[in-house]
């Protein structure tokens, strides 16, 4: 790793101030950033750890029925505390990485990084979640802007994520067994006014909504309604683990499984 200064503020205001310095970088749980630093793929002047900010941790339900999760909340905490209120999200969080990774990695860190194979972006997009930062609120449809790219400005921190709780939902991940990232992950969320389907792991553009499937499932919520709907392999990730066509096919399979498993 290159050398850097390390700060661990205890308030959001101090963190924002620390991040205003040139080349300063926020550190969530570090489960992606620390390996990246070890490979010398990043050289921040300072790391600003967000793990000391108590206000950014925890889960609650808002008056309008949304599940609100602090940006510094670990995957393990979401898996445990969302189990009753939003089981699909709890399942997603409980299958990220491994138990030790889940004890460190945070929802805010995952969403800020927007890895094209990360799990959380699919949940945020499929539920039209709101990402709250230190300066504004951003709808998920505007937030995700391609692989590792988001609407966040330099030094902006995801402090909270608000998920409208669906009637039914499921997350289905086809796991790449070595990295435990999603080869393909599909988050399907059914609301009274329609179904949303978001796909991670598959596209070169990062997480995306599969609108044809949404239309079919909104008209008829059953796996059969997807029989005439398919996705092209064009623009899908091709690597040593699978071709674009293979991933496109998996998206259909995972979506059907999500419909069957929805609760």
């Amino acid at each position: 790793m290159y050398a850097f200064d390390f700060e661990r503020p205890t308030t959001l205001a101090d963190a924002v101030a620390a991040l205003s310095k040139d080349e300063a970088q926020a550190l969530g749980g570090g489960q992606t950033l620390i390996p990246t630093l070890k490979q010398r793929l990043a050289s921040p002047s300072a790391l600003v750890s967000l793990t000391g900010i108590a206000d950014m941790k925890g889960i609650c339900t808002s008056d309008d029925g949304a599940l609100c999760i602090g940006g510094g909340t670990t995957h393990a905490t979401v898996a445990r505390e969302a189990a009753d209120s939003f089981p699909a999200l709890s399942d997603l969080a409980g299958n990220i990485g491994d138990p030790a990774v889940r004890n460190r990695g945070t929802i805010g860190g995952s969403l800020a990084n927007n890895d094209p194979a990360a799990c959380y972006p699919s949940a945020a997009l499929a539920t039209a979640a709101t990402l709250v930062t230190n300066s504004r609120s951003i709808g998920a449809d505007d937030y995700f802007q391609g692989m590792f790219t988001t609407a966040l400005e330099e030094g902006e921190i995801v402090t909270e994520v608000r998920f409208p709780i669906p009637e039914k939902a499921a997350y289905m991940k086809f796991e790449q067994p070595a990295s435990r990232f999603a080869m393909v992950g599909v988050f399907m969320a059914k609301y009274t006014d329609g179904v949303r389907v978001a796909v991670t792991g598959a596209s070169e553009e990062g997480v995306f909504r599969w609108t044809e499937a949404e239309t079919a499932l909104s008209a008829n919520f059953s796996g059969d309604s997807l029989s005439g709907v398919s996705l092209s392999g064009e623009g899908m990730i091709t690597d040593l683990h699978g071709s674009g066509d293979y991933r496109a096919h998996l998206v259909g399979v995972m979506t059907r499984r999500a419909v069957a498993a929805a609760r």
Partner: peptide, 23 residues
């Protein structure tokens, strides 16, 4: 040293973590 193998697991405040992936 890449967070895969778990030989470095310790408990921090009672939780298992990979000590190679925490400062």
């Amino acid at each position: 040293d890449t967070s895969q193998c778990g030989a470095c697991v310790v408990h921090v405040n009672g939780k298992a973590v990979k000590a190679c992936t925490m400062f």
